[in-house]
């Protein structure tokens, strides 16, 4: 019984931290996206849009490396894309944190389950899946 009570407490702490982490990630990435959006509209607001045909080969900013080099030259689009990458990493960091949470609870089955989910995402990050 005593063990049960303890487990609920740890769970509760983990949940509060997870919630804070998610909120912080969303707010931070949205601020970056907004800053990038202003720079982008300021520099390219009068350009004509053309999104009628998807062209994979025309897309830049498709890798972390390209985003960072655009970031250094303060391109609006690269700043937005950086904010988007931060947003994508928000739920991923939530998984990483949950693994630590389960480790603290000594729930090794869920440490393994969390690591499986994480390795699936890391596998997709390797950029070998795009046809």
């Amino acid at each position: 019984m005593k063990k049960d009570v303890k487990r609920i407490f740890v769970d509760k702490d983990v949940q509060v931290i997870l919630g804070t982490l998610l909120r912080f990630g969303v707010i931070l990435s949205m601020v970056v996206v907004l800053i990038g959006g202003m720079v982008y509209l300021n520099s390219q607001g009068k350009a004509i849009v053309d999104y009628s045909q998807f062209r994979s080969e025309h897309a830049d900013l498709t890798s972390i490396k390209a985003i960072f080099s655009g970031l250094l030259s303060l391109q609006g689009k690269a700043i937005i894309q950086f904010g988007i990458v931060l947003l994508i990493f928000t739920p991923i960091s939530r998984v990483i944190f949950s693994v630590f949470g389960f480790l603290l609870e000594k729930d090794y089955m869920y440490v393994v389950i969390g690591l499986i989910v994480l390795s699936i995402i890391i596998f997709s990050l390797t950029n070998k899946l795009v046809g």
């Binding site: 897309a59 498709t62 995402i121």
Partner: peptide, 23 residues
């Protein structure tokens, strides 16, 4: 969020995430 992040990574590499639309 995690499910969407997993496929978003594939979309990002492929160039389907255009900052001008996503913003």
């Amino acid at each position: 969020g995690v499910t969407a992040a997993a496929s978003a990574v594939v979309y990002l590499h492929r160039g389907q995430i255009d900052p001008g639309i996503v913003m």
